[in-house]
């Protein structure tokens, strides 16, 4: 995904569609521009975020092939549950250094998983073996659990 190109296209389109340029147009045109801008913003936000993009893309690539949406790496659930439990204690203890460390570790793991997505996608687009698609699905499943864990850290 070429983020610069995305940015460029988004800019072009938004300048064409934005309601600010239709404030004097007919009610109908105003509504259309408002609607088109909303859709554009949503598309842009999906494309810009690697996870949202992957979630959107995968079913298209799979073309109806059934992927197991519950599959997780083995032992993963157990590990997540364990992490959730220890996070309970950790957050209660309130030791800032440890909280920060755990957070950094998890953030890194999350980031690694996400950057792995791109590689798998490249592969999947070239050859589309079902196994790669399922790997992608599994990774995406796992991502949500990690995301949920990260959400628990105070800002």
């Amino acid at each position: 995904m070429d983020l610069d190109l995305l940015e460029e296209r988004y800019q072009q389109l938004t300048v064409e569609l934005h309601p600010d340029f239709y404030a004097n147009a007919s009610k109908r045109q105003q509504q259309q521009s408002e609607l088109a801008s909303t859709v554009l913003n949503r598309a842009y936000n999906t494309l810009r975020n690697p996870v949202a993009r992957a979630n959107d893309l995968l079913p298209r690539l799979a073309q109806g092939a059934a992927l197991d949406e519950r599959q997780l790496p083995s032992g993963f659930l157990m590990e997540m549950f364990g992490l959730q439990e220890s996070l309970d204690e950790l957050l209660e203890s309130g030791i800032p250094e440890e909280i920060a460390q755990t957070r950094t570790d998890l953030t890194e793991r999350h980031a690694t998983l996400i950057s792995g997505l791109a590689l798998h996608f490249a592969e999947a687009e070239a050859t589309a073996p079902p196994s790669t698609l399922q790997t992608l699905q599994t990774d995406l499943n796992a991502e949500r659990y990690l995301h949920r864990l990260l959400e628990r850290f105070p800002v």
Partner: peptide, 16 residues
């Protein structure tokens, strides 16, 4: 300035 743009007076910038 934004009012001027909305009134159709200019198109040289767009605020998001």
């Amino acid at each position: 300035i934004q009012g001027h743009l909305l009134a159709g007076g200019r198109r040289d910038f767009l605020l998001l």
